[in-house]
Design a protein around this nucleic acid. Sequence first.
RNA 1: GGAGAGGUGGCAGAGUGGUCUAAUGCAUCGGUCUUGAAAACCGACAGGCUCGCAAGGGCCUCGUGAGUUCGAAUCUCACCCUCUCCGCCA
Length: 437
Amino acid sequence: MIDIKSLEQTEVNSLTGLTYREEYKRSLKNRGADTSVIDKILQINASRRQVITQQEGLRAQQNKVGEEIARRKRNKEDASELLSEMQGISSKVKELEQSVSSIEAELNSLALVLPNLVHHTVPVGESEEDNQLVRASGVKREFSFKPKEHWEIGENLGIIDFERAAKVTGARFAFLKGAAAQLERALLQFMMDLHSREHGYNEMIPPFIANSQAFVGTSQFPKFKEDVFHLEGTDFHLIPTAEVPVTNYFASEILRESDLPIKFVAYSPCFRSEAGSYGKDTRGLIRQHQFNKVELVMFAHPDKSFELHEQLTTHAERVLQLLELPYRVMCLCTKDIGFGATKCFDLEVWLPGQQAYREISSCSNFGDFQARRAGIRFKSDAPKAKTQFVHTLNGSGLAIGRTLIAVLENYQQEDGSVIVPKVLQPYMGGLAKIEKK
RNA sequence: GGAGAGGUGGCAGAGUGGUCUAAUGCAUCGGUCUUGAAAACCGACAGGCUCGCAAGGGCCUCGUGAGUUCGAAUCUCACCCUCUCCGCCA
């Protein structure tokens, strides 16, 4: 959620020479969103104030006279004239209260669908073409044969079965068998170990189902409701990422400043309806309704979040480096960046079968956007300390299914076998090569 | 799924229609004392909204929401959650 109060202020940011409202409008424009809603919000907020002032004045009177009534009753004096006077006020107060809550509901419905302010370091652009290359790492392997795409490798080895998954569930599902299932498990284990043991994240396995309030907290709802699977007759939804349960772990809490940053690494399966992605990546494991992912989540002090964002990104990169997979880091431009993010780096791994870089991780700093929605704040122990919103960050570390694809494609051999990356061999019982049985 | 009990501040815990602006204890923070620490003593100690240049007012929140009432932590209803027992179950 954006900060409506700041929208009203006339102070100028010395860095940009603009008021917050001007900055935010510019940000909306760069995202390609409609800016007129801002003035509407300000107008509604002004009327909200007015009604609240009125309502509170009457409330105060009610409380005062109520005391007098109590006093008279105690002294066995007559209070009937005060009682009848108060009856009218009581109904007026209720009326105004209802007016306040309907105004606030309207304000909320507008504010909740507004995206975050993009950070001034984010490149302005029109499409993913304008994403900025931050760095590239690793060497693309030279193939003496035409590298195959992962589904072909997997099907040839008899370790990935899409057809039977289509029978059992439908499109965009797969069975992993034998070495593929083992590889998936090895990747999961390897990533969790790396982040928890070497990068200082606290390991977590969250619920894989969350209620709609949690989804509002991390800003999937109300705008992107169609993207998730809903369990009929309940308020439960399958999580599209561990970000939802893990970020909401501290919802409505006030953390201690000295505990920041708090870092979690979580494993979860992810479920996405992929509504609106018809025709995209219909073959293979790239875009499935269900996939496994290791997610990094941080709760950070606002002064440190951009620094920590870089750090979190390098933690995700480390996985690719250890697996010796070539990749690049892109800073997403204003049109490509996600709804809630203020800044986002995508990690794209090289897939020789596809001859393309494909997203394998998305590392975002949300600033206080999610914290406002979910009510996650912090305070120092100092006497008159003010509570502030934390900054939330998250990034895939990594998407396991796509990592499996990258391993299959980059490590494939001419005879159809696949070499197991060195760091994974201990997790595969020493297996060095996946071959057709 | 059935039966019962219960949800009050960071924690424990009092309060069952009118000085509740929620007692008290613990924890935490600041101070006094001390060579230092502990103890003791003194003080601070929820969050949000709103009016005001400010000083300082006012309003809301006792699981959530609705209701009764001039007035609700307290009464009524619904929902959520926790605990105990029974049944079922990995």
